[in-house]
Design a protein around this nucleic acid. Structure first.
Lengths: 272, 272
DNA sequence: TGAGAAGTGAAACAATAATTCCAGTCATAA
DNA sequence: TTATGACTGGAATTATTGTTTCACTTCTCA
């Protein structure tokens, strides 16, 4: 009879206990099941009032479920609302408390997996379909697609270059060959499109290349992580992709998913 | 200069103001835009710490936007989360409704996202912790880590090379330079480790390189997709990662998650 | 270059919120 | 019916959290 640490188990536990709980505690149980977000956001006083019980009843209720106090139970309600990614220390601590044994590496793995899942969910909610259409449209009409993505973004741009190549779509991966990047991109004209990918801390070379190219009126599409990105003002459209991180290492799952979408959608569009 | 009461307006206001905000306040602005959930749930102290500012700066920031104090601004962040969660219940239905009218590109996007999520979940269940430990151990002891991954796997190997580089771990990304791959890898000795990544259809060059190297008793670790992979018999340990695909394009989310795990775990191990 | 304004960090302080305590009520069983 | 133990309400206490203040630093413009 250990205390549920995640929302689903907690909910099940409440349902199971509720029938044989004293009157006021049952009242809290009912209220809790019906007003998840009130519990998550409210204060003891506000919830007590809404549920028409005393503040102390809330604490008792929490304790009867095995929690230290109301705040402890509230954490579980909150954790459901934010798919929070625990950091390394927290995970270790969490495992220690719950006597789960796992290797360090598997802790790290689950951290990265969580980060990926979270990033994907975030982007699913945020991605603007009309922007996507606009970008696909531009890329489909482009003569050559110039891909700019260095350092951390290089895996993305190189993937796109590979996939575009496979699909028979003319593209130029900047920085891939031994040549000078600035020279490669200087071939871009108004009939082409530059697809730039850059995240904090924006590689200065990427920024400079894109700015120079934008100055020559070459259309720019960007994938970046913030409205403050130096790419945001010069690209149209631009996509905001925020990758969750674990221990400072950002996931790339969402960006990659978007990159794959663009390549495949462009290929589909061109087939017509 | 009315104060935004809903999240979208608030966000727009922050973006608009941020450029000419003092340093620390701008720092808060950036943080706020990137960590909605943290602002919604955190306390002044915890957020201040995460954003690396003083608690007072958060209050000032709030006031500069016209709010009475931090709590007032926090309410706006919370209200958004409430709305979002309310929608979350109906999300499946919502998605279904929009799926009909959704653009082609967003369908593709959600297809790739699904594939990524699925791949991640699969690997979470299947990944063997002891193999992971073994691999980390070998890589931590290696003199130089040789990374072999071409074509579709190149984004993975290039990411690892970048990350290892950042972490100060000596590595050699095969196929990256203009040189001959077979020559590069011929430097690998028993004291090194080769990390090979290859999926169906296994690039013949990758296979040949790895086989030749294995013949010289260089330890091999592989990430591949089947026990029948030509890498499986010559690598120890080897990881089976099966990526779900959408329209024939395989996700890379799980592989990438594993790759990141290996890099970070090796760095951690070496620190000791 | 220096005076003044604007911005910042750290700690004191104030407010708010959670928890505990205890007296009193209610249900149960002898 | 009354004695016992569980339950409850409300206030006191304690802890946590948000806000303000002030000395100090950094910019800005004459």
């Amino acid at each position: 009879m250990e205390t549920p640490r995640d929302f689903d188990n907690l909910k099940a536990r409440i349902v199971e206990r509720a029938p044989n709980l004293p009157r006021r505690l049952a009242q809290v149980a009912t209220y809790a099941l019906e007003h998840h977000d009130e519990i998550a956001f409210g204060t003891v006083a506000s919830i007590a009032q809404a549920a028409e019980v005393q503040p102390s009843t809330l604490v008792r209720f929490s304790q009867s479920l095995g929690y230290a106090g109301f705040s402890d139970l509230q954490d579980v309600f909150r954790s459901r609302l934010r798919d929070r990614i625990m950091n390394y220390e927290e995970r270790i601590e969490h495992m220690r408390e719950h006597a789960i044994t796992a290797s360090k590496a598997s802790v790290i793995f689950s951290g990265f997996s969580d980060a990926s899942q979270k990033s994907l969910n975030d982007l699913r909610e945020k991605l603007d379909a009309s922007k996507l259409e606009e970008a696909v449209d531009m890329l489909a009409k482009a003569d050559t697609i110039f891909l700019i993505g260095l350092r951390r973004s290089f895996p993305i741009s190189s993937y796109m270059s590979y996939a575009f190549g496979k699909l028979g779509i003319r593209n130029n991966l900047i920085g891939a060959t031994g040549g000078l990047a600035s020279e490669d991109v200087s071939f871009a004209s108004k009939r082409d499109v530059v697809l730039a990918i850059s995240f904090t801390p924006y590689a200065s070379e990427t920024i400079k290349l894109v700015q120079d190219t934008a100055a020559r009126n070459v259309p720019i599409i960007a994938i970046t992580d913030s409205p403050f990105s130096p790419l945001a003002p010069i690209a149209k459209p631009w996509f905001e992709v925020q990758e969750a991180n674990f221990e400072g290492f950002r996931s790339m799952a969402a960006t990659l998913s978007l990159a794959m979408t663009l390549t495949v959608a462009v290929a589909e569009r061109r087939k017509k």
